[in-house]
Nucleic acid binder design. Structure first.
Length: 431
RNA sequence: GGAGAGGUGGCAGAGUGGUCGAAUGUACCUGACUCGAAAUCAGGCGUAGGUGUAUGCCUACCGUGGGUUCGAAUCCCACCCUCUCCGCCA
């Protein structure tokens, strides 16, 4: 959510910044909603003030035992208009709120301008793609060849876009998550958290998934009450429950920054991605991810973003996986982000880099929706900044290991840092 | 699932229809006293919004949403959450 004061005072500037990311702000609609709101609100408050004053008179008069019939008759005439105005005001405020809540964040000034993925800017390449002097297989062939990856059974149990791991590959998956958690808690200063996987609508609104992206989520109906249904939502990322820990909270200044890490499954409906990445584990309805979240002082958030990005990169470095970092352009950034770096890992079978982590600064965009604040040096509540990034997507990391560490005979070498998590196993062979 | 208690300001905790946005304590800020601090004393101290050049004035907010009333923290209804006991249970 953008600051409504900013829109009131500098509408044109906000509109032009949003235009950079391909979003057209309906200036006229905003002006019209605002004008309506102002007029109705002023009139409503006038009437309320009059009603309150008169009611007080009645109270005072009654206390003295005077007759109040005349004043009561007078105030009674206010009732209808006031009720109407109050309803109107509520309606226009709802409209205004709905209007605001689908406006994306404004990009940071340093974000490169562009329309799509093609305009993202490569920051650096780290590591060298392995030279494989044999016919390179993709992770599906490798995994199935090892007898540890089974899409058919997953499809029988659930359907398309699910996978099933067995034996050493299932263990490798677990090893990866453990390794990442250990790195972030022991080396990078994050507090490990275990969080709910089903969250309420307020939490989804807080981080920006709702109201605009409901079709990307799995909704779990909970109660059908008189007021309508109450839903749970399956988390599409641990960002949602972890960031919402500070929703409606005022965090003491000295506790900042809060740094949390969580390993959770993520559930995405992948509506609108029909036909994309249908083969393999790249795009699934369910996948595991280790997520880093920082709740941070506004002046420190860009520093924090670089740091968080570095924490994610270390994982790839330790695993010996080649990757590159790209800075997303204005047109490719997510709804809530002010700046985003993607980390892309090298996948030999695709002969390209594929996204394995996304690290963003949301500035106060999420915090404003969540009313997540801290008490500043003057003792006044002020909005926090929020950051998050994958550190890393576990399934895609598994894919990268299978492909980068594959051998001519179809076996896969276990990266050294994972061996202690694998009971000392150095190589995964077909059973 | 059954029975009961409760949700009020940063925290604790009064308040059962009329100057209650809310006593009191505590925390915090300012001043006095002090070489300085503690203690003491005096004053200040919620959030959001509207409006005005301005001291300011006004509105809303006592879990959430409805309702009754001239007037609701206070009465009524529904829901959410927390706690205690019983039952069931990974």
């Amino acid at each position: 959510m953008l600051d409504i004061q900013l829109l009131r005072h500098d509408l044109a500037a906000v509109a032009s910044r949003l235009a950079l990311r391909g979003f057209t702000l309906d200036i006229e609609k905003f002006a019209q909603l605002e004008a309506g709101r102002k007029q109705i609100q002023t009139r409503t408050q006038e009437l309320q003030a009059r009603r309150n004053a008169t009611s007080k008179q009645i109270g005072a008069a009654k206390a003295k035992g005077e007759d109040t019939a005349a004043i009561m008759a007078e105030v009674a005439t206010l009732g209808d208009e006031l009720k109407q105005l109050e309803n109107k005001l509520e309606q226009v405020q709802h409209e205004l709120n709905a209007f605001l809540s689908v406006i994306p964040n404004t990009p940071h000034a340093s974000v490169p301008h562009g329309k799509s993925e093609a305009d993202n800017v490569e920051m650096r390449k780290v590591g060298t793609p392995p030279k494989l002097d044999f016919e390179v297989k993709d992770h599906v062939s490798i995994g199935e060849g090892l007898g540890g990856l089974d899409f058919e059974t997953a499809a029988k149990i659930s359907g398309a876009r699910f996978s099933l791991l067995k034996g050493p590959l299932a263990r490798l998956h677990r090893a990866l998550a453990q390794f990442m958690l250990d790195m972030h808690t022991e080396q990078h200063g994050y507090t490990e958290t275990y969080v709910p996987y089903l969250v309420n609508a307020d939490s989804m609104r807080g981080t920006g998934q709702l109201p605009k992206f409901e079709e990307d989520l799995f909704r779990v109906p909970r109660v059908m009450g008189e007021e309508g249904e109450i839903n749970f939502y399956l988390i599409p990322t641990a960002e949602v429950p972890v960031t919402n820990m500070v929703r409606d909270e005022i965090v003491p200044l000295e506790k900042l920054p809060l740094k949390f890490v969580a390993h959770t499954p993520c559930f995405r409906s992948e509506a609108g991605s029909y036909g994309r990445d249908t083969r393999g584990m790249i795009r699934q309805h369910q996948f595991d991810k280790v997520e880093l979240v920082q709740i941070i002082h506004p002046e420190k958030s860009y520093e924090g973003l670089e740091e968080l990005l570095g924490h994610a990169e270390v994982i790839l470095q330790k695993l010996g996986l080649p990757y590159r970092v790209v800075k997303l352009c204005t047109g490719d950034m997510g709804f809530s982000a002010a700046m985003t770096y993607d980390i892309e890992v090298w996948l030999p079978a695709q002969n390209t880099y594929r996204e394995i982590s996304s690290c963003s600064n949301f500035e106060a965009f999420q915090a404003r929706r969540m009313q997540a604040r801290f008490r500043n040096a003057q003792g006044k509540p002020e909005l926090l900044h929020t950051l998050n990034g994958s550190g890393l997507a576990v399934g895609r990391t598994l894919v990268a290991i299978l492909e980068n560490y594959q051998q001519a005979d179809g076996s896969v070498v276990v990266p050294e840092v994972l061996r202690s998590y694998m009971g000392g196993m150095e190589i995964i062979k077909a059973s």
